[in-house]
Amino acid sequence: MRWIWIDKFLEFNSGKSAVALKNVSLAEEHVHDNVPGFPMMPECLMIEAMAQTGGILVGEMRNFEEKVVLAKINKAQFYHYVRPGDTITFHAEVESIADEAASIAGQIRRGQDIVADIKLMYSHIDNNLGGKEFPKENFVFTDMFRSLLHGFVEEKA
């Protein structure tokens, strides 16, 4: 089982940008653990959700042939708490892409409010600088992950 922190995509412009949505519910266990007595969505998990939104965007550019992993959080600045009942959206734009890595600029919003500005870097780990080898199977983009894109991009064989 893998934790997926976005519920669905709202927009997907291959190679350019994507918008994903998450509904935060009081039924989710993690909202109770960060600050006891003050249920909220932990910031670290929102960064993970942003990383998943951007990671799928970057991975799809090369037909999910690369293993794309989060390598660096360049910026994560939060302006508001996200509470149960909130619907948040993750807006990701590709900034740069090379053989070894990619970067995105992201924003988390709740309606018109900006919840956070986030910039992330991904490594294409089969092209890592250390020359380390990884299993051939793409353990990053599992079927469950890719199923989020149904209806947004043409399924490639």
């Binding site: 890595a101 870097m121 490594s123």
Partner: peptide, 21 residues
Amino acid sequence: SIDFLDIVFRLEKSFSVKIPR
């Protein structure tokens, strides 16, 4: 090591040039 790529990406943006790592 990942910072080297970050630096390359940022230099490309700042100077508007393509820099193969």
